[in-house]
């Protein structure tokens, strides 16, 4: 890694991300989890409709 990122006061170690970068990354993680959750709920509902599961 180049020296200028190592000396950047905004970067937090051990990972070397800035707080804003971590926030953006986290936004993607949470958004992904939400999309995934909604799709999983929908799929399980369809499986419930089709199969003898819980009937």
């Amino acid at each position: 890694m180049a020296d200028d990122t190592r000396d950047d006061p905004n970067r937090v170690w051990p990972t070397g991300l800035t707080i804003r970068e971590a926030e953006e990354l986290h936004k993607h993680v949470i958004d992904g989890a939400r999309i995934f959750f909604v799709i999983a709920v929908f799929a399980h509902f369809l499986a419930y409709v089709y199969s003898p599961w819980l009937h």
Binding site: F36, I39, F42, L46, A47, V49, Y50, S51, P52
Partner: peptide, 26 residues
């Protein structure tokens, strides 16, 4: 993510669409 999610639920959706299993009651 969208393509993955669509394919993940698509087979169930198609089976329900065909009215197989218990889906005919819905």
């Amino acid at each position: 993510m969208l393509q993955f999610g669509g394919f993940a639920m698509m087979p169930m959706a198609l089976l329900v669409l065909s009215g197989g299993g218990n889906a005919a009651q819905w």
